[in-house]
């Protein structure tokens, strides 16, 4: 497979283009939804200093989503802002586990957000992101490989931040440990679709856009094990559905309603 250098070149092969766009949508939508959940936490974290640090990670991650949406813009998918704010749930490719609410209540009132969920989710996700982006640095689509390379420059800080939280909470009180373990258990029922590549997985591998799902899963699990010794058995299932196929939950509807509230309030506006 010859490297594909530009968007114009990528558009020449319809199957290639489909697989490529699907992969980029997955990257963009994952980063966008998890950073949206992060933005809901702002001002409500367990500790002021952590609030500030967490927000930088959230901003970086949303910045990564912008980079991926911009690649899609180049591929003729429309403006980044429209891609982030207008697309319907069935067009979204983010994993369902990442759209799950931060906990009970809302950031506007009674925010019973769960730090254990946030720590576990972000740790598992950032580990996945590292493995996935590393594989993408070898992608046949050069503009995407370049973005992956860049994102990997600032992402190690994110991963180590959440790794420290996981390690320290697991090694602390009985209460904290059991809260984390419960969320890990839950992740083993729901993280499955994060690790999938959707309907074009075979084409992605064939066109050397990305490694195969099995390899991705294996690499992820290995990496997770270096931090958490006692993991639930087997590999994660996807009981909430598969976001890669466009399936989403009521939690996603809530996210979409909030994040596009102002955007849709005036169709002609420039904000």
């Amino acid at each position: 497979m010859m490297p594909v250098e530009t968007a114009e070149e990528a558009k020449k092969d319809a199957t290639y283009l489909k697989a490529l766009k699907d992969l980029i949508y997955q990257c963009a939508d994952d980063d966008f939804i998890i950073s949206f959940r992060g933005s809901e936490w702002l001002g409500l974290a367990p500790h002021i200093e952590e609030d500030v640090a967490f927000s930088s990670i959230t901003q970086n991650t949303m910045g990564h989503a912008v980079m991926f949406y911009s690649l899609l813009e180049e591929l003729g998918e429309g403006k980044a802002d429209a891609l982030a704010h207008e697309r319907q749930p069935d067009e979204r490719r983010n994993a369902v586990y990442l759209e799950k609410k931060n906990g009970e209540g809302s950031y506007l009132g009674e925010p019973y957000y769960d730090w254990a969920l946030t720590v576990v989710r972000n740790f598992l996700y950032e580990t996945f992101k590292k493995v996935k982006l590393k594989a993408i640095t070898n992608s046949s689509y050069q503009p995407l490989a370049n973005v992956a390379e860049k994102v990997l420059m600032e992402q190690p800080y994110h991963l180590s931040h959440w790794r420290i939280w996981v390690e320290q909470l697991l090694a602390s009180t009985e209460d904290a440990r059991s809260r984390l373990e419960e969320r890990l258990e839950e992740a083993w029922y729901a993280f499955g679709d994060v690790l999938e590549l959707g309907q074009y997985a075979t084409e992605m591998e064939h066109f050397q856009l990305m490694i195969g799902e099995d390899e991705l899963k294996e690499l992820w699990l290995e990496e997770v094990k270096t931090t958490i010794k006692d993991l639930p058995n087997g590999t994660p299932k996807k009981q909430l559905g598969s976001g890669r196929e466009g399936e989403h939950t009521a939690d996603f509807d809530q996210a979409l309603e909030v994040l596009s509230e102002v955007y849709v309030s005036d169709e002609n506006a420039i904000w």
Partner: peptide, 16 residues
């Protein structure tokens, strides 16, 4: 190692 991994930032933060 931490200096290498934690200190690089992308130049995409004009918003702040």
């Amino acid at each position: 190692e931490e200096r290498m991994n934690w200190t690089k930032r992308l130049d995409n933060k004009d918003y702040r």
